[in-house]
C-alpha cells in the first residue's frame, strides 16, 4: 500500500520539493491559480523550512502569484497553502508572524520613512513601537533618511524602508518579492547580507528574483518556476551543475580572431569553434574553464579582447536546460 502511494507520488505531474528533514514552515500543496483562461500557476507543490529559499523564474513565470498566495492576498483556484501550520487566507492573526515586502514600489509618499515603519509597528500592536521602529530602520541602514518623506526616496531607499516595515515585528516568515529591484550595488550588498542574516537567525525567508546570480548569492535552496510550473527545486549548486552539463555558446570578439580560435581549440571541453568576422563563436561543455582560459591565451599571444559574451546565459536559456534535463 505504501509502495503504491509512493508510485502515485512519483507519477504526479508537478514537481514537488520537500526539505529532507526539519520543520516545514510553508506548505504549498497542488496549488493552481488561473484568471479566466490564463493559467498563472499550475499544480505546484513544495514545502520549505527555516533559512533562505530563492524563488527563481523569468518575468511572468508566476513568482509573484505564488508569493501573494503565500501571503494570503490571493486565494488559490485549487490546492492549499499553509503557513506555520495554518491556512493563511482570512486569518489575520497569522500576520503577527508573517512579513511581506510586496513587488510594487508605491509606499505612502506623504509619510516619512519612520512614520511608515511605525504605522506597521502599531498595527502589529507591538508594546514599544518607537523602539521597534528605530531598530528595524537601523537594520536596513536607513536611520539618516528616516525622517524624510517616502515620496522623495530613491527606488533603493523605498525597497529598504519596505523591508524595515516588514521586519518591524520580527516575523517568523518573511516573503520578499524582488526586494533587490532598483537598488544600487552597495544597497544590494547590504540587503543580501541582511537577508542571509535573517535566514541564519532561523526565520523562513522566501525571496523571488528573475536574476540568476542574485539568487546564487542569497539562497542555498531554490525553487525554479517556469510558465507557472515548478521546473526544479533543491540545492542551488546541484541545479547549477545540471545547467553546466549542457554545452554553452560563447562569443569572443578580438583583434585577431583566427589566431585566438586556433589556440582555444586545444581546450579539452571545447565542442566547436567558428570564426565569424571579428568574433570567435565557441561551444563548450565547461564554460568556467573557457572563461579562465580566454584571457590567459589572449595575453600569451598578445591578442586584444573586445568582448567575451555568453550567448545563451539568459535565464530563459538556463530554464530551458533545467526543464529539458
Amino acid at each position: 500500500m505504501v509502495e503504491v502511494q509512493q508510485q502515485a507520488e512519483e507519477q504526479r505531474p508537478a514537481a514537488g520539493y520537500v526539505p529532507p528533514d526539519g520543520p516545514r514552515t510553508i506548505e504549498v500543496t497542488e496549488v493552481s491559480k488561473w484568471y479566466g483562461d490564463v493559467v498563472a500557476v499550475s499544480n505546484v507543490s513544495f514545502a520549505i523550512g527555516p533559512g533562505v529559499t530563492g524563488l527563481l523564474g523569468p518575468n511572468g513565470a508566476g513568482k509573484s502569484t505564488i508569493l501573494k498566495m503565500l501571503a494570503g492576498l490571493l486565494a488559490p483556484s485549487m490546492g492549499t497553502v499553509r503557513v506555520l501550520g495554518e491556512p493563511v487566507r482570512a486569518n489575520p492573526r497569522l500576520y503577527r508572524r508573517i512579513g511581506l515586502v510586496p513587488e510594487q514600489e508605491v509606499v505612502y509618499p506623504f509619510l516619512t520613512g519612520r512614520e511608515f515603519v511605525r504605522l506597521n509597528a502599531i498595527l502589529q500592536r507591538l508594546p514599544d513601537p518607537d523602539a521597534a521602529t528605530a531598530e528595524a530602520i537601523a537594520r536596513v541602514e536607513m536611520t539618516a533618511a528616516a525622517d524624510r518623506p517616502v515620496g522623495g526616496y530613491s527606488k533603493g531607499m523605498r525597497q529598504r524602508i519596505k523591508v524595515a516595515a516588514a521586519l518591524v515585528h520580527q516575523p517568523d516568515v518573511l516573503i520578499l518579492d524582488e526586494p533587490l529591484t532598483g537598488t544600487d550595488p552597495l544597497q544590494r550588498l547590504q540587503l543580501i547580507k541582511l537577508i542571509r542574516a535573517l535566514g541564519a537567525e532561523g526565520r523562513t525567508v522566501i525571496v523571488s528574483s528573475h536574476i540568476l546570480h542574485e539568487v546564487e548569492r542569497l539562497a542555498d535552496q531554490i525553487l525554479v518556476l517556469v510558465n507557472g510550473k515548478l521546473a526544479a527545486a533543491g540545492d542551488y549548486r546541484a541545479i547549477r551543475d545540471k545547467i553546466d552539463e549542457h554545452a554553452r555558446r560563447v562569443r569572443v570578439r578580438a583583434d585577431d580572431p583566427r589566431t585566438l580560435a586556433a589556440a582555444l581549440i586545444r581546450l579539452p571541453a571545447l565542442e566547436s569553434v567558428r570564426v565569424d568576422g571579428d568574433a570567435v563563436l565557441i561551444e563548450t561543455g565547461d564554460v568556467r574553464d573557457l572563461y579562465r582560459a580566454v584571457p590567459k591565451v589572449a595575453r600569451e599571444l598578445g591578442i586584444r579582447l573586445y568582448e567575451v559574451a555568453a550567448l545563451d546565459d539568459s535565464l530563459a536559456s538556463v530554464f530551458a536546460y533545467v526543464t529539458a534535463r
Binding site: 510586496p102 510594487q104 508605491v106 500592536r125
Partner: peptide, 15 residues
Amino acid sequence: ADRTLVYIVLKPVAR
C-alpha cells in the same frame, strides 16, 4: 488602485 492596501491588510487587524 495603487496597491498600497497590502500594507494595512497584511496586519493582525480585524477587517
